[in-house]
């Protein structure tokens, strides 16, 4: 199972991951927390949620977050997949989840996830990461907070330069 780094404010730690990613062909386990594909969630998610299970959804980079809008309040987490780290669609997905839909659950980066992207992830609202490059939470944090200043507003609440200057 891939290791998970979770961000808590300015800190980051290895996290215990209670969620099981359900393979496309696999049956949903009888108990425990699960992550489903969008199609599986649309077919089976409601029943699981009604049973009181914790459910997350993994979105591929070409799937729209709008398709989850109705269910977001009941979801524990949304995992956004990076098929290649050059595929930047999930950055938009994460910002929309946080800023437009007010999603307060976990947003997890999965797939081709490397510490060089850490700053982008954090600024767009991701708070959990499955590093594919073996990064430790310390390395991850250092990369994520490398820049003392930023020039735009993101989903992380940091004040852009134009606010700092006039603050």
């Amino acid at each position: 199972m891939p290791k998970l780094i979770r961000l808590h404010g300015q800190a980051a730690d290895w996290a215990n991951d209670s969620f099981v990613l359900v393979g496309e062909e696999d049956a949903v386990p009888a108990s425990g927390d699960v992550i489903l594909s969008l199609a599986r969630f649309q077919a089976e998610g409601a029943a699981l949620l009604d049973d009181g299970r914790s459910v997350g959804v993994v979105l591929e980079s070409d799937q729209a977050v709008e398709d989850l809008a109705y269910d977001l309040p009941r979801l524990s987490l949304v995992a956004l997949r990076f098929p290649k780290f050059r595929d930047g669609r999930a950055y938009t997905s994460a910002r929309l989840l946080r800023e437009r839909f007010g999603f307060g659950g976990e947003i997890r980066a999965v797939g081709d996830v490397n510490r060089e992207q850490a700053g982008f992830f954090v600024r767009c609202g991701f708070d959990a990461f499955e590093p594919a490059d073996g990064s430790t939470p310390e390395q991850w944090l250092a990369a994520a907070h490398r820049f003392r200043h930023v020039y735009q507003r993101g989903a992380d609440g940091r004040e852009p330069a134009f606010v700092e200057r006039n603050g």
Partner: peptide, 13 residues
């Protein structure tokens, strides 16, 4: 120039 510098959302277009 400033807005586009390491834009968190638009650096992997």
């Amino acid at each position: 120039r400033q807005w586009s510098a390491i834009h968190p959302e638009f650096s992997f277009l």
